[in-house]
Design a binder for these strands. Structure first.
Lengths: 344, 344
DNA sequence: CGCACGCGTCAAAACCTTTTGATGGGATCG
DNA sequence: CGATCCCATCAAAAGGTTTTGACGCGTGCG
């Protein structure tokens, strides 16, 4: 290496010396907080450019108390999940939050760990928590630390937090159930997920309310997200060979919905004629299945955009909103629920 | 709010006062750099817990010169791309880097902007640059700043940088061309992308080398990634209605490959009998098309895993490797190139 | 002519850590 | 008993920035 690139970083002091001004003058030149004469400014700018000066971000945020960075925590640690369904959800969520942040030129940090003292904590001005659990410990911790918080989907135990974006499950899930009924379904069973988050809770609630409203006998089965494909298949097979089996199932995850379709074929049940299948989240599984599976798309992109906007507004000092921003999930009607052949 | 949560953050000084020890003793208690007696340690730990002390990350990294964070820059600003193809690529890449970093409990920062002085720079110990352009300006800047750098895919103008992960296009693309030839293709045209990155360069080079090796007349057409679907369609239509039109096309992006299939149908060309189609990147477009399109999968997950591992090794002080880590892309043979009906 | 004020600049404080040389006391060894 | 060493702790420096009170000088106004 040439002697050109020395190990030591160039600091504001180096610039000041070279421009023959004080340190504070250099700072003011960049911040514009105090007026600087034209001549001095030019000298400082020239010196800074020649030296390749770049303010040390740690020193800056130590002083100002702000880092210009926003944290992101994904609650179900999708990362450890190995199913393609969850990977797609994770990727879409992370990708769209990142896209939104990049567009606004604010740095985004994936927070590795909040509790573990062995893991260095990160300098963030605020934190977005996506898909918190009920009474989520990460939310608790962030509240304790006074870190401005925005949640994507609510913490079901903290409906009072107004800085949140949430999906309107009530309308969408009712719409889906209405559709199944219209298509002739009589015994709709819900295969719900086991994680305690808004998605599972609200869809379940809506299902029960809808059943009550329509005098439909509510029937739910637990199909934990953590099941392997094989265990899920075994369990599904059992659930479909029961007396008075359902003629329509709404499955939480779309990979399990695809398995339902597969098992149905195995059992010589035609989809949708003998069994309709719908999923409460959309992914390539539902789209590539034969027949393609009706699904509720969780609008991750819209959730992310609204969440980021909310966070930046909050950091900019906006007033506390009255309540969460509400986004409508999109229903994607496909062949797995259309007995009439797709007129809709 | 109760007076419990005061605005001021609790610092190491508060802990020291409460535990009636010096500041340095508190620091040593946590770092373990110097021995601390059992009694004192307990007192300090208790005080810290009661106060909810958390070291200020900025102050820490100012002092130590390390932040424990790794930056990530995606080079083609996929973010501004609106095609689903690019969104999927972006999501997969970002998602798998994030997954890999979370698994290792190191914070990851999406770097919003490196050149723009108006955008605050970020505290990172190293930076991963994915899919750099030839002579990439971001790479230049990072080298100038002495930031430890790892690239995912090489900067084509800087083949000498050993801290890199790259794909072995030579084998994969040759394999794809061999396959087309086996299936009876005689006039293979390459529809290449316009961006100057390793993917476009290396695939083009391999194509030309392969043509030379087999006495095949090389024919390439530029199909810029930035074209809208409509403009791409127009251009593709023209390219397929030329005298002595190709009987196989290898298309850079999979969304354009899907358009090729569509136009072929429009022109009454059967795929693959009259025209074979393959893509140099895989996405839902290629999988959902009818017929499904043969594609080269860019193994983003493997690239990400290797890139992250390389970065952490570098930060941990590993020796400079001899050369880039090489990953093999996966060929996904599908109906769009199988005249023999899928025996492979 | 005297006073107030605005402008451009400077010096110093503050932000919170980690690191390191120094210190004092007790144990160990010759 | 004196010299040596180790252990636990402390005080102070250093890291690079932003912010703010102060200062000197010229200008405008009464």
């Amino acid at each position: 290496m040439g002697g050109r690139t020395s190990k030591r970083k160039v600091t504001i002091r180096d610039v000041a010396e070279r421009a023959e001004v004080s340190i504070s003058t250099v700072s003011h030149t960049f911040s514009g907080l105090r007026p600087i004469s034209r001549a001095t400014r030019d000298r400082v700018l020239k010196a800074a450019a020649e030296l390749g000066y770049e303010a040390n971000p740690s020193a800056r945020s130590l002083r100002t108390g702000r880092s210009g960075l926003v944290g992101l925590v994904l609650r179900p640690r999708f990362a450890v999940a190995h199913t393609r369904d969850r990977a797609e959800t994770f990727n879409r969520l992370v990708g769209s939050v990142a896209t939104e942040m990049l567009r606004r030129k604010v740095g985004l940090i994936h927070v590795p760990e909040l509790d573990d003292p062995a893991v260095a904590s990160v300098p963030m001005d605020g934190c977005i928590v996506a898909h918190p659990y009920g009474g989520d410990s990460v939310v608790t911790e962030l509240l304790r630390r006074n870190v401005p918080l925005v949640t994507i989907e609510e913490d079901p135990e903290r409906p009072e937090l107004p800085w949140a974006v949430r999906l309107d499950y009530s309308t969408a899930v009712s719409g889906l159930l209405d559709h199944l009924r219209e298509q002739g379904a009589d015994r709709v069973t819900l295969f719900t997920g086991g994680e305690d988050n808004a998605w599972n809770r609200r869809t379940r609630e809506t299902y029960h309310a809808w059943c009550e409203r329509h005098g439909h006998r509510a029937r739910t089965e637990l199909l934990s997200e953590s099941l392997s494909a094989d265990s899920a298949a075994t369990r599904i097979r059992r659930l479909l060979t029961v007396p008075r089996r359902p003629d329509a199932v709404v499955v939480a995850t779309s990979d399990f919905a695809a398995i339902v379709v597969q098992i149905a074929r195995e059992l010589d049940l035609r989809v949708p004629e003998d069994l309709m299948v719908a999923a409460l989240t959309d992914s390539e599984h539902s789209r590539l299945s034969t027949p393609p599976i009706t699904a509720m798309d969780l609008s991750h992109e819209q959730l992310a955009a609204a969440g980021v906007e909310l966070m930046l507004a909050r950091l900019a000092g906006a007033a506390t909103p009255d309540g969460p921003v509400v986004i409508g999930p999109d229903l994607r009607f496909r062949a797995s629920t259309r007995r009439d052949g797709g007129a809709r």
